[in-house]
Design a binder for these strands. Structure first.
Lengths: 232, 232
DNA sequence: AAAATGACTTGATAAATGTCAAATTAAGTG
DNA sequence: CACTTAATTTGACATTTATCAAGTCATTTT
């Protein structure tokens, strides 16, 4: 494990305040791996032997049932995933695959759990992270149940805009068919939803989004921190 | 706070192994309240000043947006709710109301957080509980995105059956319109879905469910622990 | 018990969303 | 660049789900 990665990981919220010795204990069994795009990292149902940290690239979390598949979320640097399964010593509920060339650090779950039991600062940080994840899923669930697909798209665009520079023009960060799946619709439906946003000043060419009439889009989307603010 | 309640609360997984002094510290500021049905306990967006424990009755967690409302879950004795918001010192993401006459214990969030920082056993238990809640929401989200309303109903019946005695006959525990909302459909749609399950041996009269052809229903529902087993 | 209220069901219809196939565009490859 | 492949879009259509209105059923109130 090169020191440069170590420093990066150390700066993550969940590792930031723990004792050096404990951090080293976790890092001892950790290893970095580089993956090309479209590589399966984990499969739902398997036991959660590793906690993962995305250092570069991006990783899709997805779920399957009865031949169907849906994108649950996309994890970007620098963040952890599969924290809950690690802590509970349980099975993965979601599968993961790389979307681009990605660097991922794998931390043995048993080490994470052991240190968790010894280092209160780490435990505190894990809880905060977990609470954050929980709230993110709740928000997502609210969005799915309370909004139509058009409204979900409109709000996604506004969130994406806020996440970047807040300017009228920005880029989509994932493929449209993944976006469709994440928003709980088919690619065809997304394509039509994009056209339906035209009267609200939205133009999407390739991956470039332009929001010409911010107010109109906001009026349609009706964003609320209770669903749309990741920090709320 | 009567001792009888205290003993009940003490036996909850999240309080079970903590130090007596810390448990007392939390109980000192706690109080029990009895509510009639249909009383609003908390409103989404408010700051999470209390963690709640349902001692008797049942509490609906629901969310609203743009004039719409959806049932997120129903909490039954003895369990906590609004743990994540308490830990994060954040705002409630969901509202809560009693469905029946209910007894609820309210623990000041600041006390919970203080003890959390001092008592490692408690912290450990909180994390486990939170991870459990997280996984429950993920399962729910998977179900919403991967299954049709008919499949959701079929699986709900099987889960409900497993939760009770596993026998062919059992009772629905909530109103049908709440069930519909929880499953992400309208009451009318639920009513029709129930009829559509007839060929699979399902009869529902009032709140009584009969599953005459278990195998047929299972074949339709295709339950998986990754979505349907609360303990998985 | 009669009346009133609310839950549930049913039918008719509309809207939203999904499916399939084909056309188009974009991206990657030799 | 020409070729191949994959992603996206479009059109036609099917299915699912929601909406509205009316009716039925059950429960509570008086």
């Amino acid at each position: 494990m090169p020191d440069s990665y170590k420093a990066e990981i150390r700066s993550l919220a969940i590792f930031e305040h723990m004792a050096d010795a404990n951090f080293e204990a976790i890092m001892r069994g950790a290893y970095v791996q580089n993956f090309p795009p479209q590589v399966d990292l984990i499969t739902e149902g398997d036991t959660a032997d590793f906690m993962h940290v995305v250092i570069s690239g991006s990783v899709e979390l997805f779920a399957t049932w009865n031949g169907r598949e849906t994108t649950m979320s996309v994890v970007r640097p620098i963040s952890t995933f599969i924290l809950a399964a690690t802590i509970k010593d349980a099975h993965y509920l979601m599968s993961a695959r790389t979307l681009e060339k990605s660097r991922v650090i794998m931390l043995p779950s048993s080490d994470v759990r052991r240190v968790f039991d010894e280092d209160h600062k780490f435990a505190r940080a894990v809880v905060t992270e977990l609470a954050q994840c929980y709230r993110a899923v709740v928000k997502n669930s609210k969005e799915l149940k309370l909004r139509t697909s058009l409204e979900r798209l409109a709000n996604h665009l506004l969130r994406q805009q806020a996440r970047t520079n807040g300017a009228a023009n920005f880029e989509l960060t994932i493929e449209k068919r993944k976006l469709a799946s994440q928003l709980g619709m088919t690619p065809e439906n997304l394509s039509r939803a994009i056209k339906a946003l035209r009267p609200y000043g939205v133009t999407i060419q390739g991956t470039t989004v332009q929001i010409a009439k911010q107010d109109d889009l906001v009026q349609l989307a009706k964003p609320t921190p209770l669903i749309d603010d990741p920090a709320f």
